[in-house]
Design a protein around this nucleic acid. Structure first.
Length: 601
DNA sequence: TTCGCAATAAACACAA
DNA sequence: TTTGTGTTTATTGCGA
């Protein structure tokens, strides 16, 4: 998911081979120099304005402008080779020119400051950017450095015109689109600029679908990240290009490697940097949240935790620090993952999951719930990509696999395939879990072997399976109450996320990832736990009498998606049954069955 | 402490 | 003989 393609490097490489590299190099070097202290990228010109008052910023901007102009004067006096604009006119003329430019430049700086402040505010308002104390604002200084006033003037003209046009047209991505505001096309040139294809598409940052962008670019020789729908997608350009050839021509002529393009590129880099920074911060926040939740859930006891999502994270992080005894590894050699797990939507890096080899572990009985398909879309991608052990018993997983099949029966091999398909975790240590699968199939009476024309298939005896259910949460009132409140809290959230997912026909994690990638999982996990608790409470009443309707016997019971009255926890529960293949899941059935949820405690 | 369950490991039998 | 499938037993850990 992370397009860690190294924006700096790409652009740096591109620039270093092209004309006009001076500016680019200046910027890159600037960035490198400031790498260690990103929060001080703009010590003088804090265009973020989140910390300094406008007055102060203006004063600082003026100081910077003066310094820049003085530097330029000195350079012109000393060498006189650097700037193409520099001529050999008399010093008086120069000074007059400089004085004029100085005024304009100062104004430009101020205006740019204000403009970028507006953008930042807009970003902040929409939650796309969080500038915290100590976090760098968009650095203006690198932008200003190395640019001569006339260039800035032109750039500023373009910026303001584009920005005005954008505002009047109500461009809905204006908040993100700092780069769009920076350009219109009019510069001559000769060489093409290597842009990071991940960085921008039509001025919009392709943070959500970077892979698709790059792939399409590679797969189709005539596709280009900067070209689409017959339009040049160079930020702010949108020139109509009849075909790809004319686009290339346009690209080479209008967006060549000159100072203007360089400046645009740098602005884009800044935008990307900010977004990456923000992403990193959100990731960190998520980790902290998960760690916190895990810690809270294990505070009362020091026993080793089941290797679920949360514990995986914390274990992997603390494994080296904590006592090794807490993780009873088996003597078997930990095998490397058979298939490299793609960095999916999950923010949990898979590398952090690999550290735990085959471990003798067991899950809390509370996980022994039948897998509901209601929230499966939210977790399928997660378990498919993240090597996280699904918090379900083998029996539950096998049952789910079988029930998902069109004929409610699977061969052993098909069950294997389901496991590997649905869970990255089961793509390694095959011998172990396959043995466990076979063991479970044989052991549990709920799995019935049926001789078929094509061999033996396995089916599920739901009545038998349900008999196992009372093992779970034994109706601990406080626990149920706890989960109920959680459920009541999460239900609206989950419902909203699901609605969003349904609207967009996309997995929920994608939608959720805009805000918090794990909310969907968390909500569903809590809900599933609640379902399990409720079901058990219910089954305690009904299990003794197997007079359930076939539907109830076959399909897991679900708590109605409404905030529950806490008082109901110990009393009769309002329950509705949900078909295993609910309509809201059917649209996902193509993908290959379903994953399970409850990935978090 | 006991009991039941689940995970894991391993041995074994059988068939293709 | 190898491999896959199926069964069974033993051990361990956890929660009730």
């Amino acid at each position: 998911m992370m397009q860690k393609s190294g924006t700096d490097d790409k652009i740096s490489n591109g620039f270093s081979l092209q004309n006009g590299r001076r500016l680019a190099t200046t910027y890159i070097e600037c960035g490198r120099l400031r790498e260690g202290v990103p929060t001080e990228m703009t010590p003088a010109v804090d265009i973020g304005g989140s910390r300094s008052s406008p007055t102060r910023s203006s004063r600082q901007a003026l100081q910077v402008a003066r310094q820049l102009l003085l530097q330029q004067q000195q350079q012109q006096q000393v060498s006189g080779l650097k700037s193409p604009k520099r001529n050999d006119k008399q010093p008086a003329l120069q000074q007059q020119q400089v004085a004029t430019q100085q005024l304009a430049f100062q104004q430009q700086l101020l205006q740019m400051q204000q403009l970028q402040q507006q953008h930042l505010l807009s970003l902040q308002r929409q939650g796309l950017l969080t500038i915290q104390p100590g976090q760098p604002a968009l650095p203006l200084q690198p932008l200003a450095q190395g640019m001569i006033p006339t260039e800035l003037q032109q750039l500023w003209k373009e910026v303001t015109s584009a920005h005005t046009a954008e505002e009047t047209t109500g461009n809905n991505h204006s908040s993100l689109d700092l780069t769009t505001t920076c350009v219109s096309s009019s510069a001559p040139s000769k060489t093409s600029l290597i842009m990071n294809p991940h960085a921008s598409t039509n001025g919009q940052l392709s943070v959500h679908t970077p892979k698709r962008e790059s792939l399409s670019h590679e797969e189709h020789p005539h596709s280009h990240p900067l070209y689409g729908h017959g339009v040049c997608k160079w930020p702010g350009c949108e020139a109509v290009c009849e075909d790809f050839q004319s686009f290339l021509k346009h690209l080479n002529s209008e967006h060549a490697l000159d100072d203007r393009s360089t400046a645009q590129c740098r602005v884009q880099m800044q935008v990307v940097q900010q977004l990456e920074l923000q992403l990193a911060k959100d990731k960190e926040r998520l980790q902290a949240m998960m760690t916190h939740l895990h810690v809270k859930s294990t505070e009362p006891k020091a026993a080793p935790q089941p290797l679920n999502l949360v514990s995986s994270v914390t274990l992997s992080k603390s494994a080296s620090e904590a006592s090794p005894q807490s993780l009873p590894h088996t003597p078997t050699t930990p095998t490397a993952p058979l298939t490299p797990v793609t960095q999916g939507p999950s923010v949990i890096t898979t590398t952090s999951m690999h550290t735990v080899g085959p471990i003798r572990r067991r899950y809390s009985d509370k996980y022994n719930v039948p897998i509901s398909s209601a929230d499966i879309a939210q977790n399928q991608e997660f378990y498919k990509n993240a090597e996280v052990r699904p918090p379900f018993t083998y029996a539950s997983l096998i049952r789910q696999a079988i029930l998902e099949s069109p004929e409610k029966q699977l061969t052993l091999n098909e069950i294997y395939n389901w496991f590997t398909r649905m869970f990255a975790y089961f793509r390694r240590n095959a011998a172990t879990w396959k043995n466990a699968v076979r063991h479970n199939l044989s052991l549990h009476k709920c799995f019935v072997r049926v001789e078929n024309v094509k061999g033996a298939v396995w089916t599920v005896d739901e009545v038998e399976f349900q008999k196992r259910r009372p093992q779970k949460i034994s109706g601990n009132p406080s626990l149920i109450k706890n989960m109920q409140s959680s459920h009541a809290y999460c239900t609206p959230l989950n419902a909203a996320l699901q609605a969003s997912m349904a609207e967009n026909s996309i997995p929920l994690y994608t939608t959720a990832s805009m805000g918090n990638p794990t909310l969907g999982n968390l909500a569903s996990a809590i809900r599933e736990e609640l379902n399990g608790a409720m079901e058990h409470t219910n089954s305690n009443e009904s299990d003794s009498s197997p007079g359930r309707s076939p539907m109830q016997a076959v399909h897991p019971v679900h708590v109605k998606e409404e905030p529950l009255d806490p008082e109901e926890a110990e009393g009769p529960l309002s329950l509705v049954t949900t078909a295993n293949h609910s309509p809201d899941f059917d649209h996902d059935r193509d993908y290959e069955d379903e994953p399970v949820n409850e990935d978090m405690e």
